[in-house]
Each structure stands twice: as structure tokens, then as C-alpha cells.
Amino acid sequence: MLTNQQIRDVVQKYEDGEENILAILLKLQEASGQNYISEDCAVEVAKELNIPASKIYDLLTFHSMFSTKPRGKYIIEICKSAPCHVNKSREIVKMFENELGIKMGETTADKLFTLQFTSCIGACDIAPAAKIGEKVYGNLTKEDVKKIIQEYREGGK
């Protein structure tokens, strides 16, 4: 949980606050530890920028990268765009689902991983692709998936 002071600090770090609202919200989402923007956080940002909370809510629900509900520490995003689709991304969906024991859209019980779809991540040359944070994984096989999860499990504890 971010304190109001921490939230204000993030907002104030950006010049032209309102223009930078997406960057601010992405930063706060990352800093939340649970990859989401809570209602309290949104209200605090709204206060700090002097705009209605309903406008923040519009932004949060409009953009696919935001969540208003807690998610895992790592978000595994599997590309569902056509170039990955024809390269059988559905197979890697199954691999991740089996490996983690959850379905797309769900979070593991240990709150470490959330599985979700993403639009094209520009990794069509290595499709099927997935993205965790800033890192992009392509040409995925069952072994790759196992290894990736293992690495994050170890790193995340």
C-alpha cells in the first residue's frame, strides 16, 4: 500500500502533471507492489492534480495496461494478435496455464503471477511471444515456459 505522501511524491516528480498522467499512473501501478491502482490512490492523484476522480477512472478503465484490482507481482502477458495467433499462441496459453495452474485473467495463490492477454507487442518476428514487465520472450516452447516461470519464482521470493 502506498501512503498518500508517497503518491503525492510521485505525482509531483512529473512536470506538467496532467499531461503526464499516464506515466504517473503507470509508475504508481508499478510501485503499488500489486500491479494495480486502488481507489484511494486514484482519489489522491485526482486531488493532487485537481481533477475529478471520475476522469482518472476513465483513464484507468480505458487503457488495457491498468488494473483497478490487485494483480500478481509479475504479469505474464501473452500476445493474442493475429501474427501470434497464426503461430499458435493458443498453445503457449495452455503451457502457461498448466505450468501455473491458473486460467487466463487469474492470479496465482501466492500472488506472484497474473496471466493475461496483451495486444501486439511488436515481437511478431519471434511469435508466439509473451512479455513479463519489460522483457519479451519469443519462439516459446514448453521447456522455455517452465524455465521462465522457474526463474521468476526464484527471483520473486
Binding site: E18, E19, N20, I21, L22, A23, L25, L26, K55, D58, L59, F62, H63, S64, M65, F66, T118, S119
Partner: peptide
């Protein structure tokens, strides 16, 4: 440098300008 946050429609020029102004990118 400004960031989007996951919205294809923000590639539409006028939507993008709205987004750059801090508004929702419709």
C-alpha cells in the same frame, strides 16, 4: 517523451493528441 498505456485507438492522430493532453484517447 510521452507514454501510452495500452490503447490501439491512440494511434489515431486526434485520439493521440487528446491522450497527450492528459485526456482519454478517444
Amino acid at each position: 517523451i510521452r507514454t501510452g498505456a495500452g490503447a490501439y485507438v491512440c494511434g489515431e492522430n486526434s485520439a493521440q493528441l487528446n491522450s497527450l493532453e492528459g485526456k482519454v484517447g478517444r
